[in-house]
Design a protein around this nucleic acid. Structure first.
Length: 433
RNA sequence: GGGCUGGUAGCUCAGUUGGCAGAGCAGCGGACUUUUAAUCCGAAGGUCGUGGGUUCGAGACCCACCCGGCCCA
């Protein structure tokens, strides 16, 4: 067997070592009589904690019952030149944990398990979608026009094409092209890039699951979102009632449902159906102590009110639904009331976890709303019109439900962590000067 | 951007009123034939984040900056 030496207790003519490989840990029992004096002493001279070694010999139990290998053959497979962090406390300094994640994973069991859980979660998401007949696809990371959201992109230079390109802020518009192509159920798990702030729930490079279902509606997407998250919870915890040090969350479907209007009415005392004018929104912000900019359009005001007053209170999984039309240009309007769109978002721990629409597939209305948004939004939020996407829509996109799920945030919610960096293997930090 | 907080040995951390820079683990030398954070003895290990300032004297006090963490915007 081969693995990494995690500890070494030298006790004279007998020594004990702890060896870890991918399947677990085992104790090595080294004895001078069994190995011969030269081999035994030579091994102790050269071995350091942190080395990779291969060892062979029969399994047995020591006096204290510890399963051990009575080492007969021993070889250093790779030498460690630097010592492992402190064996009892592990690596604690958050800066070093992020900068040298390999040491964090190597010495902190809970961190190692958390990243294994992340992989199990992504596998569970794929398993659910695969079993529901969704086709996993890959779409461009480098895009000539960014779209599918409102965010500042990373700009890069595409030498062979001699023009600027953008790292995707979303893959939505490409997945919809595949609906045009005739695939009825598609999904992609990919990195998106948004050149904006970093905080405990935002990382400029993050992982998203997006899926689209032709002829699906919002109810289908709600069922799917619940199925995805519940299955992921079971994959990690064996249950949808998840407990961790800081508390507990119940992901058992069906989740609580709340309309956007009722949420604002309860938290801000603002009734969108009584008065949804910009001045009413400003008044609501002022009376609730929310700082806003007089130049903001209604969509941004609404977003700010929701972020400040409503979202922090949504701790248990909650489906927030019936969004005002101006909050997205990509969703279909509610047939019973054109002031609203068929959209919901899922919140957990005050954090947006998922976003779903009945997708807008009318090329004429889509063009109008994209052009409206391109001109109405100011400065950094301006989203260019993707003519190539509109051309695709003009060839006919089936009615469809679409769902986006923040994978990093799902891992946070299922692992009881409150900082997104704790679920990203190698988060970016400033250079140490 | 603002507030709070941290940066001392490879790691985990102490450092009192401004008065010789400390411990544990790891590493090094030694003892020990069943340990479990082994134990015991010995020696060694420092750009106290960086740069200024105050002072007879600064890890500590003051200023600026760098890199984190938490909270707020």
């Amino acid at each position: 067997m081969a693995g990494r030496l995690l500890s070494l207790r030298r006790m004279g003519r007998t020594s004990f070592a702890k060896l870890r490989d991918g399947s677990g840990e085992v104790q090595l029992f080294l004895n001078q009589q069994a190995l011969g004096k030269d081999v035994y002493q030579g091994a102790l001279d050269v071995l350091d904690v942190g080395d990779f070694v291969s060892a062979g010999g029969p399994l047995f139990r020591t006096r204290t019952g510890e399963p051990s290998v009575r080492v007969e053959r021993l070889q250093v497979a790779a030498k460690a030149l630097r010592p492992l962090p402190e064996k009892w406390h592990g690596l604690q300094d958050p800066e070093l944990r992020f900068r040298q994640r390999y040491l964090d994973i190597l010495t902190n069991d809970s961190v190692r398990r958390r990243f294994e859980a992340r992989t199990a979660i992504v596998s569970a998401l794929r398993r659910v979608l695969d079993s529901h007949g969704f086709l996993e696809v890959e779409t461009p990371t480098l895009q000539p026009v960014y779209g599918g959201g409102a965010a500042e992109p990373f700009v890069t230079s595409y030498a062979a094409l001699n023009r600027d390109y953008y790292l995707r802020i979303a893959d939505e518009l490409y997945l919809k092209r595949l609906l045009v192509a005739g695939y009825e159920r598609v999904y992609e798990v990919c990195k998106n890039f948004r050149n904006e702030g970093i905080d405990s729930s935002h990382c400029p490079e993050f992982t998203m699951l997006e899926c689209y279902q032709a002829f699906g509606d919002l109810a289908d997407m709600r069922e799917l979102a619940q199925r995805l998250v519940a299955t992921a919870a079971e994959a990690v915890h064996g249950t949808t009632r998840v407990q961790f040090d800081g508390g507990a969350l119940d992901f058992t479907p069906p989740w609580r449902r709340l309309t956007y209007r009722d949420a604002l009415l309860a938290s801000a005392g603002l009734d969108l159906e009584a008065d949804a004018s910009a001045s009413a929104l400003h008044e609501a912000a002022r009376s609730n102590g929310v700082t806003v900019d007089p130049s903001w359009p209604r969509a941004k005001l609404l977003d700010e009110l929701m972020k400040t007053l409503v979202e922090p209170s949504l701790v248990e999984p909650t489906v927030l639904e019936r969004y005002p039309a101006e909050t997205s240009p990509l969703a279909k309007r509610c047939p019973d009331d054109p002031r609203y769109i068929e959209r919901f978002e899922v919140f957990v721990n005050g954090m947006e976890l998922a976003n779903a629409y009945t997708e807008l597939n009318d090329p004429i209305e889509q063009r109008a709303r994209m052009e409206e948004q391109a001109s109405a939004r100011h400065g950094a939020d301006a989203t260019p019109v993707d003519e190539d996407f509109l051309l695709a829509l003009e060839h006919g996109m089936p009615p469809a439900g679409g769902l986006g799920l923040g994978v990093d945030r799902l891992v946070m919610a299922l692992s009881g962590t409150s900082n997104i960096r704790e679920v990203i293997l190698f988060p970016q930090l400033r250079d140490r000067s």
